[in-house]
């Protein structure tokens, strides 16, 4: 650690340098290039050593089921009956003959578009409040994290009815204002909304990541900024936010992937069938139904790969956009 303390980071208080000037331009001499090449080769070797466990896992454990499911997506693989190759039939069917697929896709899209930004905004806001040296911070942090611990529990099916059921807490609350609500989980026009709230309710995970990210920002930046007379707001906009962008980006990418795949909560709350009237039928729930209720694992695999495509495209777009707003201190 001693060598670190000797070299504190040269922070620019006004604005952290967005992109430090890269490496010095490569040497001119031949010897120098050779040296660089050798160094590069050595670095690549070391990198592969660091990645060795991951490579083994990828080849031996991850890739086999992955490729199997890709292959199966071109078959009418049935868990019990005979099956065979069908080409693109599954893919054609889902877009042309399967209204439930489209319904599941639209439910999930609405869910993602509404709940991800809400959850992230919520998580970030609370992380910022809690980061400001509120006394009893660990207690609040723990309390706010508790719902996330409970979120995937089997008990949540009953508990959510206690909040959004006909006799639930939410209706009691509305009762104060003289409004008599019915069952929010039972009404197809509001059931999806309660799942959005459920997702926002479990904002603990992104909040924790934000909190950790906030603590990753060197305090010297703030000290320097204070000395330069930058106010709190100024510090937030020019230090906290830019330095937090990798973490915001991370949360965004993963919550997006997670929300597209979200299964457990909807499954438990709706009793596994997307009730009422398919209004909470999520994409992965439909994949699951096709695979494990109808045993049509080939079709389910095809749907899963369409989901992979959707998520991959969105993630790629996300990464491309990130060039414009995410700031890495290692550049």
């Amino acid at each position: 650690m001693t060598d670190i303390q000797e070299r504190p980071p040269q922070a620019d208080a006004e604005k952290p340098q967005p992109a430090a000037a890269g490496r010095p331009p490569g040497g001119v001499g031949r010897e120098h290039t050779l040296q660089i090449r050798k160094r590069r080769r050595k670095e690549a070797l070391i990198a592969h050593l660091f990645l060795a466990p991951w490579f083994v896992g990828l080849i031996a454990i991850t890739s086999i089921p992955l490729l199997a499911s890709l292959y199966l997506s071109f078959t009418d693989y049935h868990l019990i009956q005979d099956w065979g190759w069908v080409g693109f039939e599954n893919y054609r069917t889902m877009f042309t003959e399967d209204p439930r697929f489209l319904k599941a896709l639209s439910n999930t899209t609405i869910y993602v578009v509404v709940s991800v930004p809400l959850q992230l905004a919520f998580a970030l806001a609370l992380a910022l409040i809690l980061d400001r040296g509120v006394r009893g911070l660990p207690i609040y942090r723990s309390i706010y994290y508790l719902p996330s611990l409970l979120g995937s529990s089997v008990a949540i099916a009953i508990l959510w009815r206690k909040v959004f059921g006909a006799d639930g807490l939410f209706n009691e609350f509305l009762g104060f204002f003289g409004y008599e609500g019915t069952s929010w989980v039972g009404d197809p026009s509001t059931a999806l909304g309660t799942l959005v709230v459920l997702n926002v309710w479990t904002f603990g995970s992104p909040m924790v990541i934000f909190l950790a990210g906030l603590r990753q920002i060197p305090p010297s930046y703030y000290e320097a900024a204070s000395i330069d007379g930058a106010g709190k707001m100024r510090q937030f906009w020019s230090i906290t936010l830019p330095l937090l962008t990798p973490i915001i980006f991370f949360n965004l990418v993963l919550q997006l992937i997670g929300a597209f795949q979200s299964f457990t909560q909807a499954y438990v709350v709706s009793g596994g069938n997307g009730s009422p009237a398919d209004s909470t039928l999520f994409y992965t729930m439909y994949v699951y139904q096709k695979g494990f209720n109808s045993f049509q694992m080939g079709y389910a695999s095809a749907m899963a790969w369409v989901l992979v495509l959707i998520i991959a495209v969105l993630t790629a777009v996300n990464f491309m956009m990130s060039k414009y707003w995410v700031f890495y201190s290692d550049k």
Binding site: I59, I61, I64, D76, D82, W83, G84, E89
Partner: peptide, 25 residues
């Protein structure tokens, strides 16, 4: 379209798995 026999049904996936098994022996 599905003319495969049951034998195939039960074999293809294990075959895939064997590849993994070998790498992990």
């Amino acid at each position: 379209m599905t003319t495969h026999t049951k034998r195939l049904t039960r074999r293809v996936l294990p075959a895939l798995a064997v590849v993994g098994a070998m790498t992990l022996t």
